[in-house]
């Protein structure tokens, strides 16, 4: 790759130097400006699904997910307006109300990115009624569990399995509210012949949806994992 050229942008009024090819998020990170994220994970491809990282760009009425939007010279970005805070809070409340998240009895309690974000943004109650559909729990694998009642459909597991482990065991079936992560061709995990049982999916899952049975959560969850593997590969 050729040496990328430098672009000048402003984030929250601060002049920031970024490189062509940077996303707003990566430029902000380098400048130590915090933007909340959920579906994004360093080392995995960007997904743009959770909309937590949305920012405003001066001159456009639209909102842009910072994890996928490339910077361009002269861009002026606002990461923390009242509208953005309100929308992020709504997003978190909606995610919590889509499935029966009951933190007090959840394996991830205390180690959950969704729970942490809800706390950060002061989501102290749910403004809409919850969905009460019971979803499947796949307990067939020797030690890996997927509990769809807590899955927030962020696709981190799918990307990790595909992009890091390279086997693409996991994918999404159906659409909309019926979307569900599946193993192979929607089989029980135990009967999967492509899964290497590497646990990467459990490590990147931000919530208590995929986990390793009988393992403390602090040992399973590893936000840095994808980045670490990529750096070892020299990517």
């Amino acid at each position: 790759m050729s040496v990328s050229s430098v672009v000048k942008i402003k984030i929250d009024g601060v002049e920031v130097t970024a490189y062509e090819g940077d996303t707003i998020l990566s430029a902000a990170k380098r400048a130590s400006i915090y933007i909340p994220t959920l579906c994004y994970l360093d080392g995995l491809s960007s997904y743009g699904g959770c909309r937590l990282c949305i920012v405003e760009v001066k001159g456009s009425p639209k909102l842009f997910p910072s994890c996928t939007t490339p910077v361009s010279n002269g861009m002026e970005i606002i990461t923390n307006s009242e509208r953005l805070r309100k929308f992020r809070k709504l997003t978190l409340g909606l995610i919590l109300s889509e499935k029966p998240h009951i933190c007090s009895i959840c394996v991830a309690n205390g180690h959950c990115e969704l729970q942490d974000l809800a706390k950060e943004f002061g989501v102290d109650h749910l403004r809409v009624e919850r969905e009460w559909t019971a979803h499947k729990i796949d307990l067939t694998h020797d030690f890996l569990v997927i509990d769809h009642n807590r899955c927030i459909l962020c696709a981190r597991c799918i990307r990790a399995c595909d992009e890091i482990e390279g086997v693409h065991v996991l994918d999404m079936k159906m659409r909309g509210k019926d979307s569900q992560v599946i193993v192979d061709m929607d089989e029980d995990w135990a009967s999967s012949r492509s899964c290497t049982s590497c646990r990467k999916c459990a490590r990147v899952c931000p919530v208590g949806a995929i986990y390793v049975r009988d393992k403390p959560f602090s040992e399973i969850k590893d936000k840095e994992m994808a980045k670490f593997i990529l750096s070892r590969r020299g990517l």
Partner: peptide
Amino acid sequence: CVDESCGKCVPCRVGLLKIRNI
């Protein structure tokens, strides 16, 4: 639209569903 939402992003997948429910 709830039925046709692809489900990738939260506002459409969940927000729209809640609008319908209300």
